[in-house]
Structure formats: C-alpha cells, structure tokens
C-alpha cells in the first residue's frame, strides 16, 4: 500500500532525503575521525589541503570535512532522486536520521573516538 501525502501538500520524499543526507554527513564525519584515530585512514591521505592544494595548513581536518560534505550532498542527491515525487514513511526515515546523527555525534566526542586510537 503506497503512502499518500497529506491533502494539499507535496510528497515528503525530497525532505526525508535531505534529513537522512544531513545525518549521513554527520555520521561519516564521526566515522572518518575514528578510522583516522585507529590509523585505518591515514592523516597523510586526509590532508586534502596539502594533497590537492585546497587551502594551506589545514591538515587532516580538510579531508575529514570535505569527505563528509560529499557524503551529505551525495546521499541527499541519490535519495532525493529515488524518492522524488514519492510519499515515504517519514517517521521511519527520521528515526534512521536520528540514529545516524547520534552515532556521528558520539564518534566526534574525544573520549569515544580515542577508544579507537592505535597503540
């Protein structure tokens, strides 16, 4: 059974896509921080400022935020395309977004991401 938009309103798919996209961006940022701490992703790789000339002296933070911004815009774009003109289960989409957001938030918290620190 397909969901129908509230009468006189647009389908919610594009907005659900934006919310999940933003939460994916936050989660990816936290994930990259933790993987960098565990030395699975190296600081040298993440230094986009130096590697690609995007700024000067920013260091690994440049790669972390550029990759998470790409994740945000990319996931929003893909989901927005898939859900264009569609009414989706917004409560479920928002719950997914909140879970991703909470995980991302935890992974940016130093006492948490330091748990992954390589010896």
């Amino acid at each position: 059974m397909s969901l129908q938009p509230v009468e006189g309103t647009k389908p919610n798919g594009p907005v659900a896509a934006a919310f999940i996209g933003a939460a994916v961006g936050c989660f990816v940022l936290g994930l990259i921080i933790s993987l960098n701490e565990a030395r699975i992703i190296s600081s040298t790789f993440l230094d986009f400022a130096k590697n690609y000339g995007i700024g000067s002296g920013v260091g690994p933070l440049s790669g972390k935020v550029i990759l998470s911004t790409i994740a945000f815009l990319g996931s929003w774009g893909v989901l927005g395309y898939l859900w264009r003109g569609r009414e989706v289960n917004f409560a479920r989409a928002f719950a997914v977004a909140l879970i991703l957001l909470a995980a991302g938030f935890a992974l940016t918290f130093p006492p948490v991401f330091e748990l992954f620190a390589a010896e």
Partner: peptide, 25 residues
C-alpha cells in the same frame, strides 16, 4: 579543540536540511 573542530560541521549539514524543508513546503 578536538571536539569543537569536528562537531561544528554538524551545524551547516543540519541547518541546510532545515532550510530545504522550509523552502520545499
């Protein structure tokens, strides 16, 4: 600083989704 430099980036992601929802509806 380790927390601030990262968590600050949540703000534009979330605020952009909010602005889009308001513009869309």
């Amino acid at each position: 600083m380790e927390w601030k430099e990262h968590v600050a980036w949540f703000a534009p992601f979330l605020a952009t989704a909010v602005a889009f929802a308001v513009a869309y509806y």
